[in-house]
Design a protein around this nucleic acid. Sequence first.
RNA 1: GGAGAGAUGCUCGAGUGGUUGAAGAGGCACGCCUGGAAAGCGUGUAUACGCCAAAAGUGUAUCAUGGGUUCGAAUCCCAUUCUCUCCGCCA
Length: 423
Amino acid sequence: MLTLKVINENSEEVVRKLAKKHFDAKDIIDQIINLDAQRKSSQTMLDNTLAKINSLSKSIGSLMKEGKKDEAAAAREEVTSLKESSAVYNTDLKEVEEKIQELLVIIPNLPDESVPEGKGADDNIVERSGGTIPALSSEAMPHWELAKKYDIIDFELGVKISGAGFPVYKGKGARLQRSLINFFLDNAREAGYTEIQPPYVVNSASGFGTGQLPDKEGQMYHAEVDDLYLIPTAEVPVTNIYRDVILEEKDLPVRNTAYSACFRREAGSYGKDVRGLNRLHQFDKVEIVCIEKPENSYNRLNDMVAYVQTLVEKLELPWRILRLCGGDMSFTSALTFDFEVFSAAQERWLEVSSVSNFESYQANRLKCRYRDESRKTQLCHTLNGSALALPRIMAAILENNQTPEGIRIPKALVPYCGFEIID
RNA sequence: GGAGAGAUGCUCGAGUGGUUGAAGAGGCACGCCUGGAAAGCGUGUAUACGCCAAAAGUGUAUCAUGGGUUCGAAUCCCAUUCUCUCCGCCA
């Protein structure tokens, strides 16, 4: 969430920037500024009252020692009445703080100046692209048919065991999955990321820290008995490592990578988008998470994008990078680059990675700070990206590399798989 | 799951109702000392929010978390969470 400081000091800029996300912030910002003024005055009143109570209480102690019982009793009475008013101020303060919080939480992050105007996916800008789209024969099959033909992914079996969106990978399909995970983790490690194995369920404080709660509660699986949430991405546990943490400047940048299964309810999705591997309730992903000094965060973002590019290149997939427009960006992001690979039989671009700079928006929720040169604490910037999400990579590999003899495995993966072809 | 013990600052650790934001030790930082280092000596060492134009300063809150008792709570009471020990179960 945004800081009160930013809202108070740059309210016009905040409203202007949020317009790019098609969020009309004028009223909310005004409300917050008013509430914040109330908050300050309530706090001042409360503090002054408490200060009086404290000093009177102390004097009672010494009056009792000196045997001045009457004076002590008088002080006691005064404290009693002060306590009544302090309770009122305290209630006021809590109420106003809650209201501010409720409003802060519904304001999206400010988009960076470089974010293009636009309403939706059609307005995203292609930054660059590479690879070649293969020319497939007219008998080319989409990946869900290939999966059946070679018996490597069983969607119906997943329905039987769990439900739609929980495929069962078998034989070379399962091995290819495992190979991709190792390939991604090894590449990340070589690029300087520290490997983390996080929990796959998190508490609500973690869900709040990264922004899934309270607004996206319906998108997570919730184990109610223990009040734990299945993670929708490793971003949640890995970023929450740094919740309520003050880092030293020398600790930055933090660069972590983690593999996890990801669980998403995907309530409201339907149609061709969800066919086959295109959208699942459980899928595998390797994530990269960085924490940076504010002045370095956009360089870091570029590094992360460049790194993800090396992955799609090594996998020999046709790829493109999109700079998301204001209307297509996530709530919490300041700047996002999406990676898409072309799935040649479906003839569609599939999003396989989303790399974002959240600036201090997430860090403010997390209370992730660092001590700068002058030993002052200030909010870090957080960034993350998929590197990469497996199912759509799998879909593209299967479709793009299909031949009459079978499905050819990209060279870079062969050492991981132990086979060159699925036949 | 059952029984018991516990949770204090960066760490260890004292503190069972009244200048305790918190003794003492260690660590760390800076300074002195030294040719340099060690030792020694000295100083400093939380966070958040208010007040103040700002610095200086100062107020409030925080001794796991949330409530309660009291003029006053790290200290007493209740609930929750977590940790440890023993028993049970177990990949």
